[in-house]
Design a protein around this nucleic acid. Sequence first.
DNA 1: TCCCTCTAGTTTTTT
DNA 2: ACTAGAGGGA
Length: 817
Amino acid sequence: MTDNVLLVPPAGEPTPDADLLAGLNPQQLEAVTHRGQALLIVAGAGSGKTSVLTRRIALLLRRREAWPSQILAITFTNKAAGEMRERVGQLVGDASRGMWISTFHSACVRILRNEAQQFGFTKAFTIYDSGDSRALIKRLVKEFQADSYGFTPAAVQSKISKHKNELLDAEGFARQANLADPAERVFSEVFQAYQRELQKANAFDFDDLIGQTVFLFRAFPHIADVYRRRFRHILVDEYQDTNHAQYALIHELTRPVAGNAEPYSAGGMMIFEPESAPELDGASLTVVGDSDQSIYAFRGADIRNISEFERDFPGAKVVLLEQNYRSSQNILTAANAVISNNFDRKEKKLWSDRGDGDKIIGFTGYSQHDEAQFVADEIEAIHRAGTPYSEMAVFYRTNSQSRALEEIFIRSAVPYKIMGGTKFYERAEIKDALAYLVAVANPADSMALRRILNKPRRGIGDVTETAIARFADDQGITFREALSRPAELGVGPKLQAAIAQLDETLTAASVLMLPPSGELAPPTAVAEGLTLLLTQSGYFESLRASRDPQDEARLENLDELVAVAREFARNNPEGTVIDFLTEVALVSDADDLDDSSGSVSLMTMHTAKGLEYDAVFVTGVEEDLIPHRISAGEPGGPQEERRLFYVGITRARKRLHLSLAMTRAQFGEISAAMPSRFLQEIPAHIIDWRQSPGDVNSRGGTQSRALNGRRPGGGYGGSGGGFGGSGSDRFAPRELPKSSLKPLSTSMDRFPNRVPAKVRDNGDLELAAGDRIRHDDFGEGRVDAVTGEGAKRIAHVRFDTAGLKKLLIKIAPIQKL
DNA sequence: TCCCTCTAGTTTTTT
DNA sequence: ACTAGAGGGA
């Protein structure tokens, strides 16, 4: 550690801090100014917790209660960390430099890089993302024939992850495992082999980053003490989503420091203690959270961490923030009504003084595309009324739901951006390129080497790969070292040449990116090294020569990656390959949100946590989706789903739309969907149904199972819920027309907005203002105007019946008349 | 070793 | 509906 490690804050006149306390309500004020060992801020959605957290930090700095280097703030995403850093910076300026504001994972990486050599790793360790560890586990499952015990790689991976989150490592598991059970024994073997491979590859998986840090602290108390002395104020955001390992980490860090320390070395730096060092109190801990927003139990988050905080930290102060500054009252009423159905929760009611606001808008589509069309139309209408696209978001439960939305958005020329889904860094070509970098930065990582061995095609297959691995084993050298001795591998001359070529390429890149000790690589080294690797390996060339049209996009993606590397160099002039790889490994979906892009954001409700928008669309509000089918069987599942829905609702500032479809295609099959039970938990009078489930039922002529199964004894409109139609259209079961008994398939043909699987291409169809056109779904209309260029030309069409629409000329199902 | 065809599983959420 | 992976043939 190179930063200041002062124990006593510097003396000095406190700077006026009235601005930091201005505009806070009494509870917020308390949360900002309370001083003590432990503080729990129970912050309902939209209650200004980020503001409270940043002001609390700013006040500590402004009043000279702490050096920046004594502050550790943990957030859930890198984006949240960046935002917090910026906001603290705005309040106190340069004084904010030197703070650690990061995610659990980033903070642990930083610690591990300092201390890795203490337990058999090097500073250059790599981080395996889930895909990497899955690949490794897959190999091991095969090797140990664990599949014959019913273990899939996915199952093994999640089991290992669960244990690690509980701080049970491979050895620990083996010690307490029931070895009489062959399945358990084979799992234990795979677990141990997995851990050995990681260690051999000088790599950590995501869970290890946290778990190994805790083990490090427990095994080497003097190292832990370094960090305990350093961090005097620890703040944790989204505390309800911490898992056991993270909880343990916080506990380790907030432990008091024992006296009489010996001189010791840490992070390569000698630190001397006076003989009779006084015992030091544990760091002051502030956690912020809301158990109603706990949505990560599936990955080990333990709600008890927050619900039992007061027991864990006796004397803790608890502050409750209930006033909501984000949403209008109707939205909050809906949110409160929904969440109050969860039993076993502390009563908490959000309230707002901003008035009722608009009603919640409901819509039921015939199909998912119909639903998507409603969303697109509504977005256009709101946009025309003056709300920028970037202030709108569409949420869904599962990533696969984004497809239908995307198809309709493209056709309707709604600018959108999908967060998550197939992530940039998970694309095969990007992973390949990164594997090249890893192969240089961390030669111990044979996984990376195996990945690039035959990319591009070099004629190196399974047989040759095994030969290399065996040679390495026999000689007691690494996989990487084996590559530099091709002649001894016992493979043909062609293969020898190919291997030698790869070896040369890696060596050349290594010279460029990792100059001999002491020397600093130039900032551009990473981008240049990457280009060199991809060029000299023939990777670029093979893509360019390919006839596969997708390879063009892959080339573009790689260009993008090189650009990312350049950008990284600009922001981190001293950043190494390792730093670059670390950053890339730890970015998440929520991180690359670009608010200035002028696009509507599409994302899962999980990704939406912590964000807010003027207008929010929660789509697919159906049984089996939210709550998701799989959650039904899990203890606490439906309750967690309800919290997830609650999170979705509370993201909206002014306008909330809840939509669903009568039918939904999944696995290529169309099936009927039922309205979600959560819909009925919202008071009927605050929902304005543009088209209620009842409307669709009677008008569309489908006898929907959706409504059959749901009818409570007293019919709809009973206590506190139900699907009121808009006005006179109110749904009444007895009004169902006879035609409603038609088979589903017949009426299905009439469902509007079916989207063909293949994208249509109108070539360079020319349209001008005044032209008449016909659209497959919307009928005839007149072109008002044409905007945009080339493939992105957009026709603004006034349809005779369907009204104003924007269409992407190239792909819209239209004909000129 | 590569390429083609067939099959099976997929879609819960993620640092 | 789609895709990754397996398996068989060149």
